[in-house]
């Protein structure tokens, strides 16, 4: 059976073919999950945001012109929604003490190995630093691709990456020595 490319699947989905849209979801789930789960952690909110990415894309099928590759388009949408969710968590700090804000305030406990401590330190990064670190350092996008997804200059990506790594190193001094 012929494997349809993204453009062909989108054309079919526009005619109401839900199985074509399901194929799009299946094909791009990993990419979206990587971004959303790194930004938000393996939480219920991450699952909701992941679903929201594809639902919004379905609603915008008619407007999608294909200027960017579908993977880039979905990655951008996933990152924007994840950043919105982080903002929502920060706002909720005024009413509740959320996991996000608690993680920001607490020092990294002693005795953790590097992998565990790195997870905590990563969550302490401000959203703009976490975003570039997620795309470049975790998901392995190039600096140019990261800039395209975040709609910022490559120079900004590089400077934020450098600052993010310095912050991580400062917090992980005990584990690294």
């Amino acid at each position: 059976m012929k494997v349809l490319d993204d453009d062909e699947l989108i054309a079919r989905a526009r005619t109401g073919d839900l199985s074509a849209f399901k194929a799009i979801v299946g094909r791009h789930e990993k990419r979206v999950a990587g971004i959303v789960k790194t930004m938000l952690g393996a939480t219920a909110e991450a699952q909701d945001v992941g679903q929201e990415v594809f639902i919004r894309f379905y609603e915008a099928l008619e407007q999608y012109r294909g200027d960017a590759a579908l993977s880039t388009y979905l990655s951008r949408m996933a990152m924007n929604l994840a950043l919105n969710e982080l903002k929502r968590r920060q706002r909720s700090f005024w009413f509740f003490s959320s996991d996000e804000t608690v993680a920001h305030q607490q020092p990294i406990p002693e005795g953790l190995d590097l992998a565990e401590a790195l997870q905590l330190a990563f969550r302490k990064l401000a959203p703009e630093f976490r975003a570039v670190a997620t795309l470049r350092l975790v998901e392995g996008y190039s600096a140019e691709e990261s800039a395209s997804i975040l709609s910022i200059p490559v120079g900004t990506v590089l400077s934020r990456l450098a600052r993010a790594q310095k912050k991580l190193k400062e917090q992980l001094q005990q584990q690294l020595d």
Binding site: V25, K30, A33, G34, K37, Q51, L114, A133, L137, G140
Partner: peptide, 20 residues
């Protein structure tokens, strides 16, 4: 070392039946 630990070793998913 930080970068080696950060690079995702396996692909992430939202779990089974996500497309459904």
């Amino acid at each position: 070392r930080i970068r080696q630990h950060l690079l995702r070793p396996e692909t992430a998913t939202f779990g089974p039946f996500f497309p459904e």
